[in-house]
Amino acid sequence: MFQNLDIFQMASGLAKHASSRQEVIAKNIANADTPEYRAQDIASFQETYQGAQSQSSMKASRAGHLSGATPENTFITQIDAADPSSPNGNTVALETEMMKATEVRHQHDLAMSVYKSSMNILRTSLGR
């Protein structure tokens, strides 16, 4: 029922994007001392959400329906961060990764706030 409401789709998409980006940031931090490791990031939510919306208008409504349909999160692609490299070729800057982690936490909190507010409005409109 709630999957058809755009606000819930957007809040869910933002939470999934934040989760994916946090995963990439954690991987970068874990490999901060690995020689020749290239820091990665994920495209902004705006780009990925618009990309998902501009894909085909046909959407799979259940498993097995439209068997050629792509999964929902395949539009998230990792990109190589353009940070300067250290002498060992590693491009991870811990300060930058910590700033990104703070930004991601803010995005996730925003997604949860939108979701909770929308649920409260929906409950109020139903008289519960």
Results as ranks from 00 to 15, higher is better:
F2K: 05
N4L: 04
D6Y: 13
F8V: 00
M10C: 04
M10T: 05
S12E: 12
A15K: 03
K16W: 12
K16P: 00
E23T: 10
V24K: 01
V24Y: 08
V24H: 05
K27E: 14
I29K: 02
N31L: 02
A32W: 08
D33R: 14
D33G: 08
T34N: 09
P35V: 02
Y37G: 09
R38P: 13
R38Y: 05
D41H: 02
S44P: 12
S44L: 11
F45A: 04
Q46G: 07
E47R: 14
A52N: 11
A52P: 01
S54T: 11
S57R: 15
M58V: 13
M58P: 03
K59F: 10
A63E: 12
G64C: 06
H65E: 14
L66Y: 15
G68R: 12
A69P: 00
A69K: 04
T70R: 14
N73Y: 12
T74H: 13
T74A: 13
F75G: 10
I76Y: 05
D80E: 12
D83Y: 08
P84Q: 04
S85F: 04
S85C: 05
G89K: 03
N90A: 00
A93R: 11
L94A: 05
M99S: 06
M99N: 06
V104G: 00
R105W: 00
Q107F: 05
Q107Y: 02
H108C: 03
H108A: 10
D109V: 06
A111H: 04
A111D: 01
A111S: 05
M112Y: 06
M112G: 01
V114A: 02
V114R: 05
V114W: 11
Y115I: 02
K116Q: 14
S117E: 07
M119A: 08
N120F: 13
N120A: 12
N120C: 03
I121P: 01
I121Y: 15
R123Y: 15
S125V: 09
L126P: 11
R128N: 06
R128V: 07
